[in-house]
Amino acid sequence: MRLTVYLAGEIHTSWRDEIKQQAKDLQLPVDFVGPMEDHDRSDNIGEEILGEQPDKIFKDAAASSLNNLRTEILMKKSDVVMALFGEQYKQWNTAMDASAAVAFGKPLILIRQENHHHPLKELSRKAHVTVESVDQAVLALKYIFE
């Protein structure tokens, strides 16, 4: 059995690479998908497909429509979602993706440090499991195959 794992969360740090490497080291039969990690492409895809927009708000709206389409399709085709709430960046997209996973009925592994316990308490209760590190998330994934 192979699983597809959607990696939701900020795109500016290497946390996805850590998960992919650990899964590879453990020889887990998983494939990973996630949001567009090329920030410029994500921001400009609306104009690339739909043409130049009249202002930044319309540009963002066009890009968001296409990014939401991509995210929904990949997430719905995934078997499990891992959502990381990091320390360095605002985490609005992570919250949206984790909530979407819950709404889609996707198993959710929520990764958040202890200091995020209170602000994420409701979302943590909706997740199948909440962990505090990437290492713990990979071990939770590994347990599925035992």
Rank of each mutant, 00 (worst) to 15 (best):
A63R: 07
W15R: 06
A62L: 02
V80M: 13
N67Q: 08
D40W: 02
V129D: 05
D135L: 06
A61Y: 11
K76T: 11
N44H: 14
R16V: 02
L84R: 13
Y6R: 00
S14F: 09
L108S: 02
I11V: 11
A137Q: 07
D43P: 02
Q136V: 05
K56Q: 14
N115L: 12
N44C: 10
E47G: 14
E122G: 12
I11T: 08
H117E: 11
E146A: 09
Q53K: 14
H128N: 15
D31W: 09
R16F: 00
L123R: 04
L74M: 10
D43T: 12
L84Q: 09
V33S: 02
V30L: 08
I45L: 11
S42K: 07
D40H: 04
A100G: 01
A23I: 03
P54A: 10
M1W: 14
S14N: 15
T71K: 06
I11L: 07
E132K: 10
F58M: 15
S99E: 03
D79I: 02
I111Y: 00
F85G: 01
D40F: 03
E122W: 13
E114R: 15
L141W: 04
W15S: 07
E122R: 14
R70K: 15
W15Y: 11
K142Q: 15
E146H: 10
L123N: 05
E132F: 05
V102D: 05
N115T: 11
H39A: 12
A62I: 03
A8T: 00
I109H: 03
S14L: 12
F58T: 13
Y89H: 15
L110Y: 01
K24W: 11
K24I: 06
G105M: 09
A127R: 09
T94D: 11
I144L: 15
L26A: 13
S65G: 15
D40K: 06
Q91W: 06
D79V: 05
S78F: 04
D31R: 12
L123A: 03
T13C: 04
H39I: 09
E72H: 13
E132H: 12
S65A: 15
S124H: 01
I144Q: 10
T94H: 12
G9S: 04
V33D: 01
T71S: 08
G34K: 01
K59M: 14
L110G: 02
E122Q: 14
V134T: 09
A62F: 07
L108Q: 01
L50E: 13
I11A: 05
S65F: 13
Q21V: 04
L66F: 06
N68A: 12
A8V: 00
L7W: 00
D55G: 06
A127G: 11
P107T: 08
M75H: 07
D55C: 03
L84I: 06
I49S: 14
A101E: 05
S124P: 01
H12T: 13
R41Q: 07
V134Y: 03
L84A: 09
K77F: 06
L66K: 04
E122F: 15
M36C: 15
S64C: 13
D79C: 07
E52N: 11
E10A: 08
T4K: 15
Q136Y: 08
Q27T: 08
N115F: 15
K106A: 06
V134A: 06
S78G: 02
Y6Q: 00
A83W: 01
A100N: 12
S64W: 13
L108W: 02
A61S: 11
D55N: 15
V33N: 01
E37W: 09
